[in-house]
């Protein structure tokens, strides 16, 4: 085995073989020459670019995210500034675009427009943070259960099943009740604790399918360790379905946060949030429906945008599904 002991010798044999292969190479270049390197991700992006769902949801989400990050770009009115005497339940002034009175005033004389703009932050932060936490934790649980199988899978899957038995809303309610002072972070914790199971299930199924793939066997045959197999081979191939589920679930978390706040268990007053505003507006629904409808519309649009985005991403990642 000369090429085993000395890499130099190995390379010279390789070089000798090059000559023999040259003829074949020529023929292959000609027939396959038009292709440019293109990853599956790039393919998905090409697909996304042509999808109106993606653009509609994308535009909406960009607006909401900019709103959450820089609310002052949209309004310079302080959402907490109350003028009961001047503005109590004042109706909207539809022609005053981007003004304080565009969407009228609420029961405390605060600008509904300003509150809705500022409320985006809490909702989106909760949604994004819960999703990240859930994807990381649920993904990890699912990956371990799926990859190792056996008793690890048995244990983790049963725990997942137990948590599945607790409705997200009920679990969140019970847990958050324990906190007297609730911020965006406590709500995130509450929702993440009871929201990770779906991702874990999706991840487990996808990992079980992928770990039997020949390329995983090939990596094992090369002597690859568990870490390399999991993170280099399996993870990139299961990310697709997980991203889709996570995106769609994100909308759900935002609406759950609003529901909790509506029930008075979520975010609390000094925090401006859509849920808090919807909750406060319920008593005045007959006199001033706009106070409820405006934040409710924004909430629905955000949730819808995330769900549409998830659909568009799924179509792009797996065109066969359509």
């Amino acid at each position: 085995m000369p090429e085993k002991t000395s890499p130099e010798a190995g390379r010279s044999t390789v070089a000798a073989a090059v000559v023999g292969a040259a003829e074949l190479t020529e023929a292959t270049i000609k027939t396959q020459g038009q292709n440019k390197p293109r990853s599956l991700g790039q393919d998905a992006w090409r697909e996304l670019r042509g999808s109106w769902l993606f653009w509609a949801s994308g535009v909406l989400l960009v607006i909401f995210i900019v709103m959450a990050a820089f609310p002052t770009l949209f309004t310079d009115v302080d959402p907490r500034q109350a003028d009961l005497r001047g503005h109590y339940l004042a109706p909207p002034n539809w022609s005053h675009f981007f003004q304080g009175d565009w969407f009228g005033y609420n029961g405390q004389g605060q600008s509904v427009y300003a509150r809705t703009v500022h409320g985006a932050r809490a909702s989106i932060i909760v949604g994004v943070c819960v999703t990240i936490a859930v994807t990381v934790f649920g993904g990890l649980v699912g990956m371990l259960a799926g990859y190792f199988g056996g008793w690890v899978d048995g244990l983790l899957s049963r725990i997942t099943d137990i948590f599945f038995g607790i409705p997200l809303l009920l679990g969140g309610l019970t847990l958050l009740q324990a906190f007297t002072h609730r911020t965006v972070w406590t709500v995130t914790l509450g929702l993440a604790t009871f929201g990770w199971m779906q991702i874990a299930r999706v991840m487990r199924g996808a990992v079980i399918t992928q770990k039997q793939a020949d390329f995983v066997t090939a990596a094992r045959a090369l002597g690859a360790g568990t870490g390399r197999i999991l993170f280099r081979h399996i993870l990139p191939n299961v990310l697709g379905p997980v991203i889709v589920v996570a995106t769609i679930a994100l909308g759900g978390y935002i609406s759950t946060e609003a529901t909790l706040s509506y029930l008075g268990i979520g975010l609390q007053d000094p925090v401006v949030s859509w849920g808090v505003d919807i909750s406060a507006a319920q008593s005045q629904l007959r006199d001033a429906p706009h106070v409820l409808l405006v934040p409710a519309t924004f909430l629905s649009l955000t949730v819808l945008a995330f769900i549409l985005l998830g659909d568009a991403v799924r179509d792009a990642l797996d065109p066969k599904l359509r």
């Binding site: 003829e23 023929a27 292959t28 027939t31 396959q32 038009q34």
Partner: peptide, 20 residues
């Protein structure tokens, strides 16, 4: 037979088998 079966998106001109 050298080469590859043709890509149906770009069938060679003339006889499709000519490159091989």
């Amino acid at each position: 037979i050298k080469g590859l079966p043709p890509n149906l998106l770009h069938i060679p001109t003339g006889c499709a088998f000519n490159p091989r």
